[in-house]
Design a protein around this nucleic acid. Structure first.
Length: 432
DNA sequence: TCTGGGGTCCTAGGACCC
DNA sequence: TCTGGGGTCCTAGGACCC
């Protein structure tokens, strides 16, 4: 499915949200380069960009993988803000190869608006300053309501119906009307467009309140075993993410559904499991997730997607224990720690619960994935002077092949010893 | 005739964001 | 053949408490 496009792809008419098979002719005709998403690579590059930005301004809110707000308050005394940001842009490009655009304004909403023009209009060189800008009203009038940060599809419909079509008109609309129809969120947006800051910059990295892990299957399946594996797999992923932010879950939701784009019989359902004691243990969570699945699974449907969600998150240091808890939590924590350490040092899924599947036939397709150039030794970019030497292994190894090599290798004894070494190194207690 | 005032927690749904 | 994944905030209503 198309989830991001370059300017060139937009130009030849590649639409957002279309499944690839529907746009094959366009792709062929214009030789459009198609890539499966590679979040490891994007995460690493994002981190490099953000680190670069911190050189210029320590007060930074990392808003998403590709956006950040910098608080330049006070910088105007020593710098021309536009020049300063042109320099930021230049440096990010030089250090990371990533082109960025910068919008400058007194509020976040206006900065986002400015950014749109910085990005689109070549003449602005990627930077656009709306502070004391004589053309500010002109730009606001040229911005459709649907392009305002905080105005989505539904509000666009509502506003258009009421004769409000651009950002300027929205900023001038009646407060009571906005409050009534768009709640305080809408009113905050309107205030921000009037240059009154209502959305503060959040420098803290608040921990997540919910963690979801779900995926569409590469192929629909009615096989309960596959679905059970999927549930265990997604639970593993979510639990690892949760442990990284030192949280434990009190609630676990399991959900599954058939393919809504098909004419086949439809079914979707979810169930919320209350955990007796907040936990971050993968094995315990898998147990509950499987119990949840038992409750909602129905035979005879072609399932397309399953997932789990962890909520009611509390800090691991502040969990309420139970007097009647049958589990040995100390032992469980030791196992979990070791599990995470091995996977951190040896690579993801070096050790995993068999419940989460080995071959995972239901795996999502990602046939066109780019290499993890910056985070995997096996996938480093190679540069050759002259002709490329003959090599057995291809540079863009498929994950399956990597796993295959690993497990099929003849020297399994050596492999076992390595594992043993690592385990004793990490935890010298022979009991564990 | 006339029936208070101030809270919490939970769930579901709706809007938005990247 | 084939249609993404992961989040946040706000509101309203029901059930309950003192």
């Amino acid at each position: 499915m198309v989830i991001a496009r370059s300017a060139e792809a937009k130009e030849v008419g590649i639409p957002m949200g279309e499944p690839l098979f529907k746009i094959k002719p366009l792709v062929k005709k214009f030789n459009v380069q198609v890539l499966s998403s590679n979040y490891t690579l994007y995460g690493d590059m994002s981190h490099r960009v953000m680190t670069t930005l911190e050189h210029f301004c320590p007060d930074i809110e990392i808003y998403s993988i590709d956006e950040a707000f910098l608080n330049l308050h006070g910088f105007e005394r020593r710098h021309d803000l536009t020049d300063y940001c042109i320099n930021i842009r230049k440096t990010v490009l030089q250090w990371t190869g990533i082109p960025v655009s910068v919008g400058i304004a007194n509020t976040k909403t206006l900065a986002k608006l400015a950014n749109r023009y910085a990005k689109r209009n070549k003449e602005h060189a990627g930077v656009m300053n709306l502070i004391d800008n004589p053309d500010k009203e002109k730009y606001m009038k040229a911005t459709l309501v649907e392009d305002i940060w905080g105005v989505g599809r539904q509000y666009t419909k509502l506003l258009t119906k009421n004769g409000i079509t651009n950002a300027y008109e929205f900023s001038q609309a009646n407060d009571k009307w906005i409050r009534k129809h768009m709640t305080v969120m809408g009113l905050r947006t309107a205030f921000e467009l009037r240059d009154i800051p209502c959305i503060s910059i959040d420098y803290s990295h608040p921990s997540k309140k919910a963690i979801i892990s779900s995926r569409s299957f590469g192929k629909v399946t009615s096989n309960k075993q596959d679905i059970k594996e999927g549930v265990a797999y997604f639970t593993t992923i979510a639990a690892e993410k949760m442990r990284k932010q030192k949280s434990a879950a009190t609630l676990l939701t399991v959900f599954l559904r058939t393919n809504p784009f098909k004419d086949s019989p439809q079914y979707h359902n979810g169930v919320l499991c209350k955990l007796p004691v907040p936990t971050d243990s993968t094995s315990e969570l898998i147990t509950y997730a499987e119990k949840g699945l038992e409750q909602i699974f129905r035979e005879g449907y072609l399932y397309h997607k399953v997932g789990i969600m962890l909520t009611g998150l509390v800090h691991t240091d502040r969990t309420q224990i139970s007097m009647f808890d049958p589990e040995d939590r100390v032992k469980m924590a030791t196992v979990t720690d070791l599990f995470d350490k091995i996977n951190k040092e040896m690579g993801a899924r070096t050790i995993f619960y068999a419940a989460s599947g080995i071959h995972r036939p239901w795996k999502t397709q990602a046939n066109l994935k780019s290499p993890k150039f910056t985070t995997s030794w096996n996938e480093l970019l190679e540069v050759f002077a002259g002709e490329k030497p003959d090599r057995k292994e291809d540079q863009t190894l498929d994950l399956d092949e990597i796993e295959g090599e690993y497990f099929d290798s003849d020297d399994n004894d050596e492999y076992d010893d390595t594992i043993k070494d690592i385990v004793t190194h990490l935890n010298p207690d022979p009991e564990i």
